[in-house]
Amino acid sequence: MIDIRYPIGLFFSIIGCLLFAYGISTMHNPGLYEKSLGVDVNIWAGLLIFLFGLVMLALSKGVREKQ
């Protein structure tokens, strides 16, 4: 059976990267973030999601090396 942490890690690191990059590129566009109380939430959410993805990838890799 597959280790689901691998696809989860892959998915969240890709999405995290994407959101982070989008957040950076739209940083100077305050109109976009009026809704989110002026916070560029894409940067922060992207970063956290990316880190979560990395943790998942690390866990799955560790398991594979042990086997």
């Binding site: 976009l32 809704k35 989110s36 894409n42 959410a45």
Partner: peptide
């Protein structure tokens, strides 16, 4: 719709 900007809205 009220809170999420493009990007997080997609998520």
């Amino acid at each position: 719709k009220h809170y999420l900007p493009p990007g997080l809205l997609g998520l």
